[in-house]
Design a protein around this nucleic acid. Sequence first.
DNA 1: ATTCTGACGTGGG
DNA 2: CCCCACGCCAGAA
Length: 117
Amino acid sequence: MGVKKNDNTSSDTSFFDRVYEVAKLIPYGRVTSYGAIAKCLGAARSARMVGWAMNACGGRDDVPAHRVVNRKGILTGKHHFQGTNLMQQLLENEGVEVIDNQIQHFDKVFWDPMKEL
DNA sequence: ATTCTGACGTGGG
DNA sequence: CCCCACGCCAGAA
């Protein structure tokens, strides 16, 4: 008995994987903020880690990181994408207006993972 | 073990 | 809205 197969730091999945799960739930044409995801995970104070998790997602097509912005609705992470304006292009492609890295009608396209779930 | 960083958030002025 | 400063936590060297 007491056979520990894994140490499981805190949960089955790592913090990163959890962020990906929520990010994948973001509907088309919607955006959310890092803090919103962090809160949904129960780590409201780890909003930064959410962004970091996205950084590790480099290469994962399942994680629409382009739909995640900061609380101001600014594409803070666009610099981490390939092109210079790839993130903006992706958002506009979904019907989200983006001007100068700032999402227009941010309150309308905002999607709260906690509220919707 | 320590140190630094980082795609954030919040509060005060 | 802007600017400044602090907190926050997980991962990499």
